[in-house]
Design a protein around this nucleic acid. Sequence first.
DNA 1: CCCAAAATTTGACCTAGGTCATTTTTTAAG
DNA 2: CTTAAAAAATGACCTAGGTCAAATTTTGGG
Lengths: 235, 235
Amino acid sequence: MKVVQPSCPSCLIKALSFFSELDTFDLLNLNNNKICNFYKKGHIVFYEGRIPTGIYCLEQGLVKIYRVGIDGKEQIVRFSTPGSLLGIRSLLSEERYTASAATLEDSVICFINKSFFFHLINKYPKMNVEIVSYLCRKLKEAEDKIISIAQKPVRERLAESLLILNRIYKPNGKSVSKPKILLSREDLANILGTATETVSRLLHELKDENLISIEGRSITLTDIEGLKHTAKIFE
Amino acid sequence: MKVVQPSCPSCLIKALSFFSELDTFDLLNLNNNKICNFYKKGHIVFYEGRIPTGIYCLEQGLVKIYRVGIDGKEQIVRFSTPGSLLGIRSLLSEERYTASAATLEDSVICFINKSFFFHLINKYPKMNVEIVSYLCRKLKEAEDKIISIAQKPVRERLAESLLILNRIYKPNGKSVSKPKILLSREDLANILGTATETVSRLLHELKDENLISIEGRSITLTDIEGLKHTAKIFE
DNA sequence: CCCAAAATTTGACCTAGGTCATTTTTTAAG
DNA sequence: CTTAAAAAATGACCTAGGTCAAATTTTGGG
């Protein structure tokens, strides 16, 4: 796969969020300052404990943010999808990364160094507003996850996570076909905070109930409403 | 108990955080705009689902932020201690409260209405920096909690929570005596995401191991290092 | 296309911790 | 100080889901 150097002025990330305020001059500036890399599936973007030297911008692909517990067991705390910034939390609070990031698919990720990013924030105070709203959203999601893990049985959490993953894997609304969730049982287990064997068994159950279909490693949701029901999500 | 109307210019909250930038004029303004109320222990500050109309400022006391699950079971997601703002997450992301807040002790809480608060943020963009750093801290804590609940057995989580509570209950460094943690078993269970009976049993265990002492409802930590050890916290 | 290594599935078994019922203790109102 | 109601402790029991081991399937490199 070729590494395509994306150009900032035409980058979807600009439109999506944090950089929407930038004028042409600074967009070009950003373009020159960023370093863009191709990451193969399964590669690590940054490690827990390291000191951030800048910020990563996911241009294409999918990334998991996770921490490793004492016994070496991973816990996935969130995902990053194209258009979001990676490592912003640690950079902003000027502390070491408290989590690691690794690609779940082949990905293209840009790097913007700390001083340039802070320069932009100072020049465009409105970026802080975007950042605040981003953090609020993440905080809410984290709290949702606390409730979920603390109160729901694994089966419900699995259904819930599949519904969330379905949105993450949904190709930008273009394709008519249903999204395929492509994750190892281990990653799935590390989202739910359970064992891989339990994931296997429960996926089998959901399949038997015609809520999902499984082809090899890929999962397709066939009955969204049914899954919402087993996840006990009522909106 | 008398309701003392605290004055903003001398309020510790100003010094602590968000309002540290304000000039004398705006501090007086804030003083006139805020409404201060006394809340008896156990009373509700705001309810999940309601639309925020402003922000609360905890001047004195202790507040739990919690959500109620489908089966009516509470999950405490965090605490607020004097000097912190309540309901800032929902106000900033312009959505309904996703959690309720209730006092755990008699408390004094000020209310600042939305428009005035936003006016201040606009006038003092640096407040956003404070807010960002606050949100980063909370996000980290929330992610810590996810790992903890997902991976640690209840016993470890209890030890961990007691250590955190010990800091929360620590009177401003003045008193030499050890802080007393004063929470119902139910609240404790709702922090850990477990049953009250389990809390009872485990507290009894910790007491037998001379890690804590219990007088009535109040818990004192007698062996911090030992607790860190059972919590598997190694720093 | 082939094959070894890795991932997944399945079965057997076990335990942390949840639930329910009962007793004991604590609390707060009068 | 008394007492009823609430909270906590304790015991008995049970099950969701973890662990370990073995069989089966999938995958990616050559």
